[in-house]
């Protein structure tokens, strides 16, 4: 569904992505893991056109989309849940969700909004509250709900578990699995490697702008280097 080929992205003279290759098959969950500063967020931003990549190709459903402006990428069916949630703080929960459906013209927006509310009941309770007044966990739910309102074919998530309590993290990962089972392909960036590898089908390990390892989630989880660096030693993952 998504195929990235030797993608290079720079900030001025700093090369943050030094030619990465990555593939996301339709219907799967792919995890992209790596330490702080590895370039995960840069990869996500390059995908959705927030930053223009320097070279390389991004092909989504047969269409080369590198360098496209964000709103066009969204139009193809790619939604990003950005790092740090990026909720519209001065708009209500309801308006945030409406903005998620910005490019849609169909009649099922209201029904989808009810679906988001049933997935995250707390948002229904807070529907008229300003986004900026929600707690971190609630904001993450809103960010996911907002992205779903676009009915994406491919959902990109950048560290959805960041700064959340373990119970909420478990909830978020459960929701991501549900979304995938309902037919949405997922590319997940995570620091919470253990959880991310548990729900993923495939995984890529990014280190300082390069993919150093990839394979099925199972293979990656049992790779000694990954166990050492990301899973806290040999007994990390059974």
């Amino acid at each position: 569904m998504l195929k990235i080929n030797s993608l290079v992205t720079s900030y001025g003279s700093i090369k943050a992505l030094k030619g990465i290759d990555l593939e996301v098959p339709a219907g799967s969950i792919v995890s992209l893991i790596g330490a702080n500063g590895a370039g995960k967020t840069t990869a996500m931003k390059s995908l959705v056109g927030i930053i223009k990549p320097q070279s390389g190709t991004i092909v989504f459903q047969g269409q080369a989309i590198q360098g496209w402006p964000s709103h066009k990428v969204v139009g193809l069916g790619v939604s990003l849940v950005p790092e740090g949630r990026r909720i519209l703080a001065r708009m209500s929960v309801l308006e945030n969700l409406e903005m998620g459906a910005y490019q849609r013209q169909d009649m099922e927006i209201q029904a989808d909004m009810e679906k988001v509310f049933s997935r995250f009941p707390i948002l229904a309770e807070r529907r008229n509250q300003l986004g900026g007044t929600l707690s971190g966990g609630q904001q993450q739910m809103l960010a996911i709900g907002r992205a779903l309102m676009a009915r994406p074919k491919l959902l990109l998530l950048d560290e959805p578990s960041m700064g959340l309590a373990p119970l909420v993290v478990a909830e978020i990962f459960r929701v991501i699995q549900d979304i995938n089972r309902e037919g949405t392909t997922v590319l997940l960036v995570e620091q919470n490697v253990r959880q991310a590898l548990k729900i993923a089908h495939y995984a890529y390990v990014l280190e300082t702008g390069k993919i150093v390892l990839h394979g099925t989630a199972e293979e990656v989880a049992h790779n000694p280097r990954v166990m050492e660096a990301y899973l806290g030693g040999a007994k990390g993952m059974k």
Binding site: S70, H71, V74, R86, M91, Y102, Q103
Partner: peptide
């Protein structure tokens, strides 16, 4: 209003900012 809050966020929601 969304663009006023953040051009980047409005963009990834599909707004031609």
């Amino acid at each position: 209003r969304a663009t006023a809050e953040s051009t980047e966020t409005a963009g990834i929601l599909g707004v031609n900012t």
